[in-house]
Every structure is written in structure tokens, then in C-alpha cells.
Simulated assay, not measured.
Amino acid sequence: MHIDLNRRHAIVTGSTAGIGLAIARGLAAAGAHVVITGRTQARVDDAIADIAGQIDGAQLSGVAGDLGTRAGAEQLIAAVPDTDILVNNLGIFEPKGFFDIPDADWLRFFEVNVMSGVRLARHYAQGMAKRGWGRVQFLSSESGVQIPAEMVHYGVTKTAQLAVSRGLAESLAGTGVTVNAILPGPTRSEGVGDFFGKIAAEQGVPVEQVEREFIATHRPSSLIKRLATVDEVAHMAVYLASEQASATTGAAVRVDGGVVRSVI
């Protein structure tokens, strides 16, 4: 299968590292013009340089701002009024016991993980529908269907993304715009790597051991028995952005290594 995204324009939120960076790289490799977004100009510039250094002729631009706020969303929309592909990847996580999560944390997680995608999809999907083609994606998580006790607030926001994704797909029925959610499992992203690295340093053991113990203890249902790579998740995002994925919409597509024990 050859995926050709030439003449397509894409925005990937939270794309200066981890899964977002891998998705941006994958879309650029398929020929799309990709807008990199991040909180600081320095991070955006570094990501653009990283992708440009790996992909000859990559079409890239960037917008710096906090997309976890309404002002940040408005800033991006003003700079980039239209797009063909919107990947709502921006997200935060933090292990914290339920009884230790204050209101401020609940609201912050909802703003960043849910409202960032809502605001952008509300704007960009309308233009896609008028043009008769578009792709909207929400990066949810297996934690959206298996709420982790160690970070309930995170899991709740990931469930909310599934609802938003399906509801938007229903709203765009027959327009040529597809809307899907991707559910990664435990993935070796920058944030997860930093988290495991901190634990490894505290325990005086290799990071690889911490990862193995995490899978064995917290995700024993994993069928691949390891963390996924960011590129493995990105491959699914690139496919869902393609012409070939035109009949896939309203779906929650898992790239979880089999962690979710379900036949559908």
C-alpha cells in the first residue's frame, strides 16, 4: 500500500516529541505539509529541524503556543485557518491517587486533554465538510476503556475523547470527513521514558527492567509483552489520514499491543 498525502495539509498538536513528533514525521514522509505545534518556539524549531534532517523535501511549518487554553487555540486558528488533516495528539498524564487529585488538576487535565481537541475540531472540521474531504483524529488511550487506578483523572479524559470522536463522526455523516480515535497502549514516548527513567534512578536499576516490571505488574494482559514504539502508533495515524482509510470513521482503533482484553 502506497500512501500519498501530497497536496494535503496537516496539523499535529503536541508534535515536538513522542507520539506527536512521530506522527508529524510520518505524515511529512507521505508528502503532507505538516504544521508542528508546541508550547515554545525553541521546541517547535527543534522538531522541524529533526524531521527535515530525516526527510528530504519535507514540507513543514510551525506555530508555538499553549493549545491547552482557548487563547492558544485561537492563536493557531489565526495563523493556520484551514487544514485537511487534524491530529489532536496533545495530552498530559500524571500518576496520582484519586484522593490526592484536587479540582485544579481535574480542570487542567480536561482543558488540555479534551478541550484542546474540541476547540480545534469545532473550527477545522467545518471547513473540511465544506470542501468534502477531511480527517480528524483524537489520540485517546487504552486507559480510556480500562481506567487506571493510579491516574483516574487521565483515564476519564481519555474516555471523554472517545465520546467526542464518535459524536463528531456522527455529526459529519456523509460529508467525506472521517473522525477516529486511536488508543495506544503503554508506549515508549518522551514522557513515559522520563517517568520510567526517574523510577530507575531511584531504584538503581536499568530502565529496561522498570519497563518489564511495569508490563508484568500493571499491564499483564499485554500480548506483545513490551512497550510499543512511537512509530508503531504513528503508522496507524498515517493510515487513518490516507485516502485508503475512507471507510473507517467513528471508530476507536487500538494500537495497544493487545492490552485491552476484548474481541472488538
Rank of each mutant, 00 (worst) to 15 (best):
A200D: 04
I19N: 02
H123F: 08
A252M: 10
A129E: 12
L27R: 13
A79T: 11
E211C: 07
A169W: 03
V263A: 11
G204Y: 08
D256G: 07
R119N: 04
E213C: 10
V260L: 12
V118C: 15
Q146M: 14
A73C: 12
G31V: 01
S221Y: 06
M115G: 08
A10Y: 01
T229N: 12
A58M: 06
S116L: 12
N180S: 14
R39I: 14
D194S: 15
R212H: 12
I101D: 13
G72V: 11
N88I: 07
G26C: 07
Q203L: 14
L107Y: 11
S116V: 12
K130I: 13
D45C: 03
D56R: 15
R226Q: 07
I23T: 15
S171N: 08
I147M: 10
R7F: 13
T248M: 13
Q203S: 12
F99D: 14
V259M: 04
E74W: 02
V114A: 03
P206T: 05
R7V: 09
I51C: 05
P184Q: 06
Q126L: 09
D256M: 10
A47E: 01
Q41M: 14
D45W: 03
A29E: 10
N89W: 02
A247M: 15
T69D: 00
A216T: 01
V152Y: 14
N180P: 06
V87R: 01
L27N: 12
N113S: 05
